[in-house]
């Protein structure tokens, strides 16, 4: 698990809030360049064309979104506090007194405001709206306005690190975990000839999936597999709401997804003894698969997910074995298609 932990840590240390994925794109490209010719498109998507030997078979696209949720600076007050809006579905409950980095004209340390208890009027359960919060960067209004252009992104600051056993925590595991699984899959395939393989590290999934929609159109692959995170079991969740950490990779089943593709993924997981669970969704999956499926003339899609706790907070937690299982199943699928 050390290798995938290293990849994850490298990817989680850089920022890439939706629409400003540059640093994350650069970090992911360093790994991707080891196996693929890398390009960036007009929306900020990173595209990798695998350069190893090529067999026949379908043109497969593997997608994982690069962006992470965050905040965006909407105003600077006279006293130098930053007003912010959410970029993606940010969890407002965890923001009080959270350390952040403001990606202004230079990276600036900041703290999100927390109203002290004497003003809470005895109601400890009240959670402020994001528009009532502010980021404290310790500068006067004039200095703050000069250092932080409106539109600057803000990320939650938590160093990625290992917990007990095989667990890993960090701030952007949604979806650097998916990016890491694809990069690890490419390492598994090293030296092998495969069918034509395109990697898409997509922009702006958390704000609606426009990156995947555009790249799905321009790449027009024969099929696509999206790799993302899904809900991991934790106290307070019903068994049917979430998958236990450590159960393996989650194979998506949904009207949006190709039944043939999902079935083949399951067969391969069984023959290769890769731990997995079926994850059934009644309609849209809430991932890039929803956009890829209807891109261009339509793309049959599969979906692999990694169970994740505390999604959309600074303390997301996953089990590295699930990441590894996801990477293995992706590699098994590519090999399978390359043999035909």
């Amino acid at each position: 698990m050390d290798r995938i932990a290293d990849i994850l840590a490298a990817l989680c240390r850089v920022e890439g809030v939706s629409g400003a994925e540059d640093a994350a794109a650069e970090a992911a490209s360093i790994f991707l360049e080891q196996s693929s010719a890398v390009q960036t498109d007009r929306l900020g998507n990173v595209l990798g064309f695998r350069t190893g030997g090529q067999t026949g078979g379908p043109r497969i696209l593997l997608d994982a979104h690069l962006d992470q949720i965050g905040l965006i600076v909407t105003a600077v007050t006279e006293e130098g506090f930053l007003r912010v809006g959410a970029c993606g579905h940010m969890d407002a409950r965890v923001l009080a007194a959270q350390e952040v980095i403001v990606h202004g004209s230079q990276p600036l340390l900041g703290v999100i405001s927390s109203v002290p208890p004497h003003l809470a009027k005895g109601d400890e359960s009240a959670c402020p709206d994001i528009r009532d919060l502010c980021v404290d960067i310790g500068f006067s209004g004039e200095r703050a306005a000069a250092l932080v252009p409106l539109g600057s992104r803000v990320t939650l600051l938590t160093d990625p690190m290992r917990l007990a056993a095989r667990r890993f925590t960090g701030a952007a595991l949604d979806n650097r975990a998916g990016v890491a699984a694809i990069l690890r899959c490419l390492e598994f395939l090293d030296g092998e000839a495969t069918c034509p393989l395109t990697v898409l590290f997509s922009a702006q999934e958390e704000t609606g999936g426009s990156g995947a929609a555009a790249a799905g159109f321009s790449m027009a692959p024969d099929e696509a597999i999206a790799v993302d995170v899904s809900f991991g079991q934790a106290p307070g969740l019903a068994p049917e709401e979430a998958a236990p950490l450590g159960c393996g990779t989650l194979i998506g089943w949904s009207p949006v997804l190709s039944r043939d593709l999902s079935l083949r993924l399951e067969e391969l997981a069984q023959t290769e003894r890769i731990p997995f669970r079926r994850e059934v969704m009644g309609g849209r999956t809430g991932t890039n698969a929803d956009r890829l499926q209807v891109a261009g003339t339509g793309i049959p899609c599969g979906l692999l997910s990694i169970p994740l706790r505390n999604m959309h907070t600074g303390i997301e937690v996953l089990d590295l074995a699930d990441s590894e299982a996801t990477a293995k199943l992706l590699a098994a699928y590519v090999r399978d298609k390359s043999r035909r």
Partner: peptide, 28 residues
């Protein structure tokens, strides 16, 4: 005040083992 530690990293015991104060994902 519990909002100050919800969703934050903590350190447990004399060895300062890393841990997190978990939350149910907002999506659910």
């Amino acid at each position: 005040d519990r909002k100050a530690y919800l969703g934050k990293r903590v350190a447990v015991g004399c060895q300062a083992l890393p841990g997190v104060v978990g939350v149910t994902p907002v999506h659910l």
